[in-house]
Amino acid sequence: MRNWILPEYISDVLPSEARQIEALRRKVLDLFACYGYEQVAPPLIEYVESLFTQDDSALDLKTFKLVDELTGRQMGLRADITPQVARIDAHILNRQGVTRLCYAGSVVNTRPDGVLSTREPRQIGAEIYGCAGVAADVEAVELMFAALALAGLSEPRLDIGHIGLFDALADAANLQGNQRAEVFAAIQQKDVATIQETTAGIPADLQAGLLLLPTFYGSSEVLAHARAKLPQLPRVLAALDSLELLTLALQLRGIVAHFDLSELRSSYYHTGLVFAAYAKGFTNAVARGGRYDSVGEKFGRSRPATGFSMDLREFSALPFPSLRAGILAPSGDDAALRLAIHELRDAGEIVMIDLGVVASEVSIDRMLSLQDGRWQLVPIVKV
């Protein structure tokens, strides 16, 4: 067996893809900075206790684990950066007001999210801590759309759900343990028969509400239908109120929302609003986000939070401006030559010293040539 073969769903990132990923990373981080987000860089590896915001079996399964040779404690390779950012906000920064944080880095998953997915996504995201209002959710969605525009996606589709609707009905019905998990999974899969079978014996109005959740799919009219048909529980009404406010605010920004009130899968720790962006030509969502209130509770400080993330590697196949052709310069210690190279690089040109360059293997179209006592640019003619 060849020992250099990579594991399944793990791949090298070659020059053109790496350049595209890095260029987009810089653009998106600059965009976040314009909105007031401060960048943080959590470690790739931590003790497992710090990698989860709660007892989260799904995220636990996605996390590679190993033993720390220094302490004997169990460590994990992060499968998601948001829990780490929540720790930074709650435990290290400990600010009183609203905090905007962003990040970019690799995560590693024990299993891919889909057939065409990688187990080493390049996650980039932005999060707002300390604001429970809809205005924070509006900013998160607006910023997500701006980031997707930088990636070349001009018309992504926005799908919105709200986990609070399920939680309100399940809590009122006292669904717990395996029963709650089975109903939760069945609603995501729009499996009405399983929902009906699993909820047999709960109050009829609550069962009817759970059976209705998979049917609420479409435009903003869905919210009116849900308000008319779901049990009038305070938490149900509050969730629908927040979705209506969000819809109106997004419309003012030219963003049209579609709704799927059985969409509960945005991530493992979300507590309310969940949203995802989809685009033509992509199998999976190109970005996901939502609200995860009380996310810092495990780290000693409960704070409302909202945000989104996306995988930079998802966009590496999109059309991207070609790398500008470079300049080939001879190797040598001539002061005038070194000065000419320095000035060209300061002007943004790519200058490669000729240490054995094969012109057909790199992108160059000019070279520095000594003519009439001066170093001048001359075109390279490729045969």
Rank of each mutant, 00 (worst) to 15 (best):
N3S: 13
L6T: 01
L6H: 02
E8G: 05
Y9E: 07
S11L: 05
D12Y: 08
Q20N: 05
Q20L: 03
A23D: 10
L24G: 01
D30S: 08
D30T: 04
L31S: 07
F32A: 10
Y35E: 14
G36D: 14
A41K: 04
L51S: 03
T53M: 13
Q54W: 02
Q54P: 00
D60A: 11
D60R: 04
L61W: 01
L61E: 13
V67E: 06
E69P: 15
E69M: 00
L70S: 14
L77C: 09
R78S: 08
A79K: 07
A79L: 04
Q84C: 11
I88M: 05
I88H: 02
D89V: 02
I92V: 15
R95L: 10
Q96L: 07
G97H: 14
R100T: 05
L101N: 05
L101W: 06
C102S: 15
Y103P: 00
Y103I: 04
S106N: 12
V107N: 08
V108C: 10
N109K: 15
T110H: 00
V115D: 06
L116R: 11
T118Q: 06
I128C: 11
C131D: 15
C131A: 14
D137L: 05
D137I: 02
A140N: 05
V141L: 09
E142G: 03
L143E: 04
F145M: 08
L148V: 01
A151T: 05
E155S: 15
F166G: 09
A168Y: 09
A170F: 03
A170S: 13
D171M: 04
N174T: 12
G177W: 07
G177C: 09
Q179A: 09
R180T: 07
V183W: 13
A185H: 10
A185L: 12
I187M: 15
V192K: 10
V192E: 09
T199I: 11
T199G: 07
L211V: 02
S220W: 01
S220H: 09
L230Y: 04
L230C: 12
L237K: 10
A239P: 02
A239F: 02
A239Y: 00
D241R: 10
S242T: 14
L246V: 02
L250D: 02
L250K: 04
G254M: 02
G272P: 01
V274G: 06
F282S: 03
T283C: 06
N284A: 14
A285N: 04
V286I: 15
D293Y: 08
D293F: 12
R303N: 04
E314T: 03
F315I: 09
S316N: 03
S316H: 03
A317M: 00
R324A: 14
R324Q: 13
L328S: 01
A335S: 10
H342D: 13
E343F: 08
E343C: 08
L344A: 08
M352I: 14
I353R: 11
D354P: 02
A359H: 12
E361W: 00
R366N: 07
D372M: 01
I380Q: 07
V381I: 15
V383K: 11
